[in-house]
């Protein structure tokens, strides 16, 4: 087969003068949906993960457990359709919410359940004496979580969070189903119009790889900056200074 990369210079006949400009805009949508979903997922995930291990009472751990099971057990595409088709049928006001916001919400909630489990695991990996020491100093449970437990637990879970952050970018491809003109939609549409599927899909794959790799590098930098010497096993592995 012959390559025809000049297909990206052709005119799709719409808002964008060429296919590559359209593709970059689609990349922007992918990034916008992913980053907003990731921020939402991190905030909710840390909160729910902390509540999963909450020692006072049974309501909050159960609520957080239900949250995790609900958002983790239902396939992402089904969740997107629930947000897009079912909820607006019940609450007509939601019909005006744009598809990209719904996609970010769906992706954010889905990922929050996964991050919550990682945060819970991080908290449970700490020796229990740590929390007890905080409480013995007179901190409330909330203060103890904020000042003592979470700062250590979050450092522990940075590596799994990295893969989760990369997953968000890849999972954002389901947003095409709710009319967000992101990379996957561009690929499906442009390959149909140009009949050059291999070139289009290769370019789009390249952009996904670049996005995921950028997230990976950012998280690696975060991991390095946040490291407390002697706390995490990774430090012992990485540090051959000793």
């Amino acid at each position: 087969m012959t390559w025809r990369w000049e297909v990206f210079l052709e005119d799709p006949g719409g808002r964008y003068p060429t296919y590559w400009q359209w593709m970059l805009s689609a990349w922007g949508w992918t990034a916008a949906v992913s980053v907003s979903a990731l921020i939402l997922a991190l905030l909710l995930g840390v909160l729910i993960g902390a509540l999963r291990t909450w020692p006072d009472g049974v309501f909050w751990p159960r609520f957080a457990g239900a949250w995790v099971e609900a958002f983790r057990s239902v396939p992402l595409l089904v969740q997107i359709f629930l947000w897009y088709h079912v909820l607006p049928a019940i609450f007509p006001a939601m019909k005006r919410v744009p598809g990209c916001a719904l996609a970010a919400l769906a992706l954010g909630f889905f990922t929050s359940a996964r991050i919550a489990e990682q945060v819970r695991a991080g908290i449970q990996s700490l020796p229990p004496g740590r929390r007890d020491a905080g409480l013995a100093l007179g901190l409330t449970t909330a203060q103890c979580y904020r000042r003592v437990v979470l700062p250590a637990a979050l450092r522990v879970v940075i590596p799994p969070l990295t893969s989760e952050a990369m997953n968000v970018f890849k999972n954002s491809s389901v947003a095409f189903a709710v009319s967000v003109s992101e990379l996957t939609m561009f690929a499906m549409q442009a390959q149909e119009e140009t009949s050059r599927g291999v070139e289009i899909y290769l370019a789009v794959t390249g952009l996904y790889v670049i996005s995921a790799l950028a997230v990976n590098r950012i998280m690696a930098a975060v991991e390095k900056r946040a490291r407390i010497p002697g706390l995490v096993a990774a430090d012992a592995l990485a540090g051959d200074r000793r």
């Binding site: 808002r15 598809g99 549409q189 149909e192 119009e193």
Partner: peptide
């Protein structure tokens, strides 16, 4: 998504035939 009709609509959009909002089904 993935049909030639999308392009037909886009061409109308550039020609400026009545401004309408587009959504795309899976």
């Amino acid at each position: 998504t993935g049909t030639t009709s999308v392009r037909t609509l886009r061409k109308r959009e550039r020609a400026g035939v009545g401004a309408f909002k587009e959504v795309f089904g899976k």
